[in-house]
Amino acid sequence: MSSPVIPEIKRDHIMNLLAKGQREDGRGKSDLRAIKIDAGCIESADGSARVKIGKTEVIAGVKILPGTPFPDSPDVGVLTTGAELIPMAHGSFESGPPGEDAIELARVVDRGIRESGMVDVKKLCITVGEKVWMVFIDIYALDYDGNLFDAASLAAVCALKNAKVPSSQYGAGDDMPLPITCIPVSITAAKLGNDLIIDPNFDEEAISSARLTVTTDDNGNFRAMQKGGKGSITRAELSRSLDMAVEKGKEIRKIIG
């Protein structure tokens, strides 16, 4: 993927501000943008959420259908996450099947949800070996101003949190809320020069050399991580990212409620 071109004058401006501990939009290095969550906005979905982090906007929908379990886990429900970077969200996104960026995004979101055990998939069995609930999470970027990882994670988590298993529709008893055990929250840090900032916007992301997404659970334990970008991070930067993921994770967990 070719990285977006940012005018040098803009790059210098961002870096000069950062040297003073400031950012273009008035935030400090470890401040999140304003978060808005509209949960349950889509009635045709079994769970949904539209999330804004600053100007970045993402919608996630959950569809739950009965299906056949995998042969090696006959009594366990199935969880699948997909993401699309549709052309509506940014001039650089192209239509067509998901590219490597969309695939990485979906897999990082999936990892946080799966590894934290957020959805108790063992409670999603209908008939052992025959029928289990299959939970499909589909994420679409609507408006892209950086940090899709955290926006997509947040949207997916909120959509799952308000999802209902449509049992009655399939003659499998009463509808029930999706069994949720914990709330995974991801925090992404970007490296600009030798500075580390969280929740990068588009311009910051474009001039960053590396990013690190860290997903924590309710106890502040680490459940998933992904380093991205062509640059490197030091152990000190890794350590700082972990601290911020725990601290800011608490902040977001309060907003989710």
Binding site: R111, E115, F222, R223, M225, K227, L238
Partner: peptide, 13 residues
């Protein structure tokens, strides 16, 4: 310097 890092599962700091 770290150039690749992933993690999945459950770990304390």
């Amino acid at each position: 310097e770290i150039v690749l890092l992933q993690m999945d599962g459950n770990m304390t700091r």
